[in-house]
Design a protein around this nucleic acid. Structure first.
Lengths: 333, 333
DNA sequence: CTGTTAGCGCCTTCAA
DNA sequence: TTGAAGGCGCTAACAG
């Protein structure tokens, strides 16, 4: 900074003011300093400025896994939003560590970030409080807790809409494939299941759900079980697309035609869903990320109130994996 | 830090020494300080320590896009490797900005990161030099440049192996679908195409390639074109799985059976490839990321020489989308 | 509008 | 083995 000041023939403060866009500098001086900085390809050290301002210019994003499609897309949205505000994005993947007691302490969050965004972390109240201890705003994505800033979708409504779609087509034997990891099921899992169950109940039909491990394998197994029932379903709703993909594989191997013999529907609008022509529920994770990022920026600027909650819309994407059951008179008969 | 020192009844220096694991502290004092820090849930500010040491404890990872499957997986590997060394991961997505002249300057890298890892950025020599200007080690992933630290796969060999697989099955009309974004094609695109072409040439067959925009749509279009040839291919190799997925969709819609009427092969081992039973070339992006992360740590510690190059293996994953052509006597006839 | 000064929190000499 | 002092690069409050 000294060098820039010398080169522009001004003091350190002036350079500082220019470089951080503060007012109160003569336009020509400003230009001069700017040029000097450019020529020396000098940029301020966020480290040093953060030391005095107390702001780091960084936001931590915590995700359970990075490999899954959803997180990459959500991160893209968050990243774009943060860039608008000139904030850097620190990414922490807490997959394995999550199980450990006090995992939040393992991350060097305190005083190293201006805010924390968690994506689909399904935090307990206890964990939320631990993160509050970091002393910066916490924004929850994919989870809605009272009084907390969050961006989420209505999983109940989404699953209910999907179920209704199948019922409207004339199906009555509609099964559901859900997921559970060991004994623990996520909030979104529970909500989607509830959406399905309540819609079935409202239609006077009894719910029929098979719960397996998440992922393609789980879907394969679950569909295998459904197919070996004495009276298999004519439509199946999967908790998310990856499960549906697994189910689809089982169907293909078993020679069951989709949607002719069985309607299959997913949830997420995973990129692979398009390939398989899978009817699904879109949840626009990029927009969710973008919204969460902007919300965070707003909270940091004080323009958005803490505790703001944003519900993102979901939308059914009709493709060719769902149709009216054979031999019945549904909507399309 | 003051608080911790008081609580433990020692000086600031002692706390500092304990917290950064420096030698020269009595074991019992060490424990006492440790406990005091824990009780106050105190962690050192990387910001402040970095100011003195010149190290930030952060590594910047630059990716073109975050949405694509490959990057999420690679990031997961990098993240795990960096965590081992207690380094934080800063992620920059440079999608749109990339086109702008001097995009490297738009990222606050200088003095804000200890190293830079680029993933599939296909940097020009010029861009590499710009990043060198940041003054920290540069590690290239998915790209190999002379003299530069890099982790990559042999795309030529991978594509050549894939082509040979199809030739070994007895195919002679083997087409290739490649990608190009506008007039620009990436290094890996070129290498894969070369691998295909040289293998065809060596077998005395003339290459037959169709180049389209990348992604599912490109694959759909390209396959459409191949199918409308007066003498369509009996086998098709796609530059990557997403293209193959698009091609697959066209085939399904056209009623062409895979692999009965046409063998289809991809490259990447995308998660969706398993669903479609697509034969492909695995390139283990997680391991690539992990290796790159560890390499970076090594370079930072001085245990690994700069300029180290690591070639990651590729492997053909045989599934059910490839088979001997009908009516010929290939390997399996 | 510009320059001077006093720290921000920590690490690194050096002295005890 | 421990403590005291100086300074890393920058900003904020003040003085000019």
């Amino acid at each position: 900074m000294r060098d820039v000041a010398d080169r522009a023939g001004v003091s350190l403060s002036t350079v500082s003011r220019v470089l951080r866009g503060a007012p109160g500098v003569a336009p020509q001086v400003r230009r001069r300093v700017q040029r000097a900085a450019d020529e020396l390809s000098y940029v301020v050290s966020r480290n040093a400025s953060g030391l005095v301002t107390g702001r780091t210019g960084r936001v931590a994003v915590i995700v359970p896994f990075l490999q899954e499609w959803y997180f990459g897309v959500a991160l893209a949205g968050i990243s774009d939003a943060l860039r608008e505000a000139d904030l850097d994005m620190l990414v922490y993947q807490v997959g394995e560590i999550r199980a450990r007691e006090g995992w939040t302490r393992a991350l060097p969050l305190r005083r190293n970030t201006d805010a924390v965004i968690t994506v689909s972390m399904d935090l307990s109240e206890e964990e939320c409080r631990r993160l509050d201890d970091v002393g910066v705003p916490l924004v929850l994505v994919g989870q809605c807790e009272r009084e907390r800033t969050s961006v989420y979708i209505d999983n109940r409504a989404g699953a209910a809409g999907a179920t209704r779609h199948l019922l409207n087509l004339g199906h009555t034997r509609v099964a559901y494939i859900g997921s559970r990891n060991g004994s623990w099921s996520s909030g979104s899992s529970r909500h989607r299941l509830e959406g399905y169950e309540s819609t079935m109940a409202r239609a006077g039909l009894s719910p029929w759900s098979v719960i397996r491990a998440p992922g393609i394998e789980g879907g394969e197994l679950a569909m295998g079980e459904l197919l070996s029932d004495h009276d298999p379903p004519t439509a199946v709703l999967a908790e998310f697309d990856t499960i549906a993909l697994g189910a689809h594989r089982t169907l293909r191997r078993s020679g069951v035609r989709v949607p002719t013999s069985l309607s299959l529907m997913g949830f997420d609008n995973h990129e692979a869903a398009a390939v398989l022509d899978l009817t699904t529920v879109d949840q626009a994770p990029y927009d969710t990320g973008l919204t969460a990022g902007r919300l965070t920026v707003g909270v940091l600027n004080g323009t958005t109130e803490r505790g703001t909650q944003v519900e993102m819309p979901t939308q059914i994407i009709l493709r060719h994996s769902t149709a009216a059951p054979r031999g019945t008179r549904g909507l399309s008969s």
